[in-house]
Design a protein around this nucleic acid. Structure first.
Length: 419
RNA sequence: GCGGUCGUAGCUCAGAGGCCAGAGCCCCGGAUUGUGGCUCCGGUAGUCGCGGGUUCGAAUCCCGCCGACCGCCCCA
């Protein structure tokens, strides 16, 4: 294996056999998001490290140990984006999108990078569809986004889903709650696992969903964030739940649901699927009313979600992905037929048909075999006979019938043979 | 970063100390002259992940490294 260069760990090639599913998912996502008025935005994969540190939070795992960071030759400290929201908000601020206070609905598709240990459903380069809406502060926006995500998941036939919902309140609510929680946890320090002991002061919310049994017991009667919500947040959360119920969307209120990014406020949610492994979150999102201001824009409420493409692909019913076939396989039987075959192939494409011009010769038998393997519907054969007569042989590879037709009628003859 | 399982042809895998390392799929060719799919025949292809060690002899046993997968952690 000398000289063979490996792919970077956790970074996967997406091969031709898989790209059809990717394209299908991306097309469906675009179509659905656009019916809700969202428009695509594209922004760099690389940003100043500080953007992520400030938006995601210095003390989060993502910023602390999962980012790909480096100093470029000019000495600027950059990072490959570990998620999309920060860059999206930065781009919107940079473009002055918030001047005038108009509502904006944006979506994006693309790779994100986190230096984690790869496993099923978790990769170092992974792909998300993200949506962000800016302006409206109301709970109805949160619910419309949940409806939109659900439509997408249903459209793609994703099984075994559960929607988990929680509210994190405003920063001051969280601060008050955090104090209470730390006090509670400190009293039970002895019953917590090692990692949770370390977490008490740094990120006490994380202790709540530790999977160690003793931690679960210790935390069973811990204070719950939703008991500490301010009046506005409480009302917001109740309204979200009421609207979800009226929309007929089932959810479970999960008081322990905590997101790994600091910018969330009020509503947070997560869809999990029981058909995945340990990495079972397919969609996650929520409201982040403080982020735009935090990044230097005008105070602007906002909400959004991100969807993991690889995870969704793993869940999708591949049967619904359309297979696009090849219309015509054009076979020049010898060198003399090449120029006519090339020209005929172009004519077929002029008519909107797909044509595989066969280069490389071989016996008619081997060429037909190739046409068959390629899944061509029709083979167009051009040999001495056809050249002499000014015809082509159009062979229907499904029916097994063929006919000789004048060359200029070939496109029509091919089209007639297609389902 | 921690733990477990596993690395043999392009792919899926068999071989578990001893004839030149095997099968299926794929690919290529053939089964009379210009006709695919089914069948049959033949063929190409592997420094058995890499490096050391044990042994008369290692794909097979031992050690190290690398990689993949699964889980922890964390999250999409």
């Amino acid at each position: 294996m000398a000289g063979k260069i490996r792919p970077v760990r956790g970074m996967n090639d997406i091969l031709p056999d898989q790209t059809r599913a990717w394209q299908y998912l991306e097309d469906r996502a675009r179509r659905i998001l656009e019916t809700y008025g969202y428009r695509e935005i594209r922004f760099p994969h690389l940003e100043h490290l500080e953007l992520f540190a400030r938006s995601i939070g210095e003390d989060t795992d993502i910023v602390e140990k999962e980012m790909y960071t480096f100093a470029d030759s000019g000495g600027e400290v950059l990072a490959l984006r570990p998620e999309g929201t920060a860059g999206c908000v930065r781009a919107a601020i940079s473009a002055g999108l918030f001047r005038g206070g108009g509502a904006h609905r944006l979506y994006y598709l693309g790779p994100m990078f986190r230096h984690e240990r790869p496993q099923k459903g978790r990769y170092r380069q992974f792909h998300q569809v993200g949506v962000e809406a800016f302006g409206p502060p109301g709970p109805d926006l949160d619910v419309e986004q949940i409806l939109m995500a659900q439509r997408l998941l249903q459209d793609l036939g994703v099984p075994g889903l559960t929607l988990h919902l929680n509210s994190l309140g405003q920063p001051e609510d969280r601060r008050a709650y955090r104090g209470e929680l730390i006090a509670y946890l400190e009293e039970r320090r002895g019953r917590l696992c090692d990692t949770c002991r370390d977490r008490i002061q740094r990120s006490p919310l994380r202790v709540l969903d530790c999977k160690v049994a003793s931690c679960q017991e210790a935390v069973a009667s811990a204070p719950v964030i939703t008991d500490y919500l301010g009046e506005a947040s409480r009302a917001h959360f109740e309204r979200v739940q009421a609207l979800l119920q009226e929309a007929g969307i089932r959810f479970v209120h999960d008081p322990k649901l905590v997101r790994g990014l600091d910018y969330y406020t009020d509503t947070v949610y997560e869809w999990t699927s029981d058909h995945l492994g340990a990495q079972d979150t397919v969609v996650a999102g929520g409201r982040y009313d403080g982020l735009v201001a935090e990044l230097g824009g005008p105070a602007t409420p906002a909400a959004g979600f991100a969807l993991g493409i690889e995870r969704l692909l793993a869940l999708m019913d591949s049967a619904q992905i359309p297979t696009e076939g090849l219309d015509a396989f054009v076979a020049p039987l010898d060198e003399r037929a090449q120029s006519v075959a090339l020209e005929l192939s172009e004519t077929l494409r002029d008519e909107g048909l797909s044509a595989w011009y066969h280069s490389g010769g071989g016996s008619l038998k081997s060429q037909l075999k190739k046409a068959d393997r390629l899944g061509a519907a029709v083979a167009v054969l051009l040999g001495d006979q056809e050249l002499a007569e000014g015809t082509v042989t159009v062979r229907d590879l499904v029916q097994g019938e063929q006919e000789a037709v004048p060359r200029d009628r070939a496109p029509q003859a091919v089209a007639d043979r297609l389902g």
